[in-house]
Design a protein around this nucleic acid. Structure first.
Lengths: 184, 184
DNA sequence: TGTACATCAGTGAACGCGCGTTCACTGATGTAC
DNA sequence: TGTACATCAGTGAACGCGCGTTCACTGATGTAC
């Protein structure tokens, strides 16, 4: 049957949100379209009313989550305190244990390379994030700020990934702490 | 029919090697048992003569590849020149473009967290790598060396992952270069 | 040394299952007159 | 304003396919006598 257009837009958002979370929790391949639709409170059929394919949904999810990250980076840029707070939150056990709501680079970074439709949009978002993070590190030159932001970003992403992979809580926390302290 | 035991051991190694490469190239879920066996020159049936399950193979692959990494780290520890060479090789476009033969942390790091059978063995291997890398960074204290090795490791892994995810070659090389220069 | 037999890795068809995707159908909503 | 009809998101069965895993069978090898 027909549904009011307002609901359609709302459902699209809901699918995107649920998929975004599930993909970050378990990876693209280990989450099925049916599962996403079920989490969104729908049957699997109408998925194709909202997205052209699973791959198209993946791309939209990445952009959606990267834009949220960019927003966070922008907000954190306002003061030294908020930047340090951001880094502490990023490299926290809370963030480590909630991959579904967390950084998409740490959750799906390793899988983006294999999804052609996702790499382009991801790259554009990453550029914005690096540009914005550069202002976190005032240096003698713009280039130096940019370099420091790349170094900070790579170590934050790497630390979160390794702290999640490891099953020894002591080592896991050590990785987060040392990178945190190296950056603040 | 029956085969000489020497061939059995050799085939086991071959499966392990091919699986290791395919998993690093495409991830655990996107490589099938049949594909691995075909790459090893066998039909899919006898897989279960060699391994208890796909998950067991995954665990063995991780350990196999992590031990190879450990060997590399140990060998690089002999001199300042060899350490810098190692870092240059790790953060090179050649390594970026050959994930199948490269660092298992960068290739599969994000997926290990989801494979219970793999996390334990991975953690033990990572501990050895961190211990060994600590000698790369002579500092006032053992703790300080260890901290620097954790910081170096996380940024190397993070940089390789992001440089692979990005589809703009200029940005990809910039990420590798800046982290490389930050470490040498 | 020669013969009879147990062993067991490899073969390839088959298992049940869930995947991504399609489609004929439903029926409340929006539109035309 | 009331009626007739087109629209189209949602339903759920069905598509072909490949997955991980199992198993009855094969037959060269190793072993016992």
């Amino acid at each position: 049957m027909r549904y009011p257009p307002s609901e359609t837009a709302e459902k699209h958002e809901r699918i995107l949100k649920e998929a975004s979370q599930l993909f970050r929790e378990r990876g693209f391949s280990d989450v099925s379209v049916s599962e996403i639709m079920q989490a969104s409170g729908l049957t699997h059929g109408p998925f194709y009313n909202h997205f052209a394919s699973k791959e198209a949904l993946m791309a939209e999810c990445i952009v959606h989550a990267m834009k949220a990250s960019l927003k966070g980076v922008k907000a954190a840029g306002r003061s030294t305190e908020s930047r340090e707070k951001y880094i502490h939150r990023y490299l926290s056990t809370a963030h480590r244990d909630t991959a579904g709501e967390g950084c998409v680079m740490a959750a799906l970074g390793g899988q983006i390379r294999q999804e052609p439709a996702v790499r382009g949009p991801f790259t554009e978002c990453l550029k914005s994030i690096i540009d914005n993070m550069s202002s976190w590190f005032p240096s003698r030159s713009k280039q130096a700020s940019r370099n420091r932001s790349i170094q900070a970003l790579t170590s934050m992403v790497g630390a979160l990934i390794l702290s999640r992979a490891v099953d020894d809580p002591v080592l896991s926390e050590e990785i987060l702490r040392e990178v945190r302290e190296g950056l603040t």
